[in-house]
């Protein structure tokens, strides 16, 4: 589904991602792991058009999507979440989810000023769908609360649900459980496995090894911007290179 062909990104003299190649299969939960500074988030930022790729290409289902901007990629079926939570605190929980449906909604300026029928209809239709999504994560009761008043764990879930609104084919989750407690982590894993994975392909960047091993179909390990290893969770656990790379950072799989 997604083909990443020897992409490179340099910051100053440092190659954050160096000649990285990878293939993500349709329907997979494909995890990208590696020590801090391995270039995982840089890779996500290149795929989603936040950073320009220095060299290399990225293809989605055979179409070149290299250096296409984040907002245009949404219309190609790619959506992402952020390592540092990006939620609109000034909007309500429901509005944050509705934002996910934004690309389907009529936003004509004059029509909005005069409340044309299409505006009202869209709003009603997608409010129902947004409420349905909120139901999936048990947040119906909080729908009208301002997002800034909610806990970090809830907002992490909200971010994933918002991304689902765009009906993506591929979703990139950048550290969805960073900073969460075990219970919240479990809830997010469940969300990813049951709800998300049914419909979409997932690229998961995560440090929580337990979770990665639990949910992943396939894993790519990065170190110093390069691909160190790839394989199924079982293969990765037993890979000597991977163990060596991780010993320094103290994470034991």
């Amino acid at each position: 589904m997604l083909q990443i062909n020897s992409v490179t990104k340099q910051f100053g003299g440092i190659k954050a991602v160096d000649d990285f190649t990878c293939r993500v299969k349709k329907g997979h939960i494909h995890s990208i792991i590696g020590p801090n500074g391995a270039g995982k988030t840089t890779l996500v930022n290149m795929i989603t058009g936040v950073y320009r790729v220095d060299s290399g290409t990225i293809f989605l289902d055979g179409a070149d999507i290299t250096n296409i901007s984040t907002d245009k990629l949404v219309y190609r079926g790619i959506c992402r979440t952020f390592q540092n939570l990006e939620i609109c605190g000034n909007l309500t929980v429901l509005e944050n989810v509705l934002l996910g449906f934004d690309k389907y909604m009529d936003k004509g300026l004059l029509k909005s000023c005069f409340r044309a029928k299409s505006i009202l209809d869209d709003e009603k239709r997608y409010t129902d769908r947004a409420k349905h999504l909120l139901g999936l994560i048990g947040l119906e009761d909080l729908a009208d609360k301002k997002a800034e008043n909610l806990s970090y764990g809830i907002l992490k879930k909200l971010e994933i649900v918002r991304a689902l609104g765009t009906s993506p084919e591929l979703i990139l989750l950048d550290e969805p459980v960073a900073g969460l407690n075990p219970k919240e982590t479990q809830e997010i894993s469940d969300l990813i496995r049951t709800v998300v994975a049914d419909e979409v392909t997932i690229i998961l960047v995560e440090h929580d090894m337990k979770m990665v091993m639990q949910v992943s179909d396939y894993i790519t390990v990065m170190n110093f911007g390069k691909k160190l290893a790839e394989g199924t969770p079982d293969e990765i656990v037993n890979n000597q290179d991977v163990i060596r790379a991780y010993l320094g950072s103290g994470v034991v799989c």
Partner: peptide, 23 residues
């Protein structure tokens, strides 16, 4: 309206708005 929601979301988080397809 949805248009206004887009504006308010830009004030809240440009990155979030961008990530759901808003130019």
């Amino acid at each position: 309206s949805p248009f206004g929601r887009v504006l308010r979301s830009i004030e809240g988080s440009e990155k979030a708005a961008n990530s759901v397809g808003i130019n």
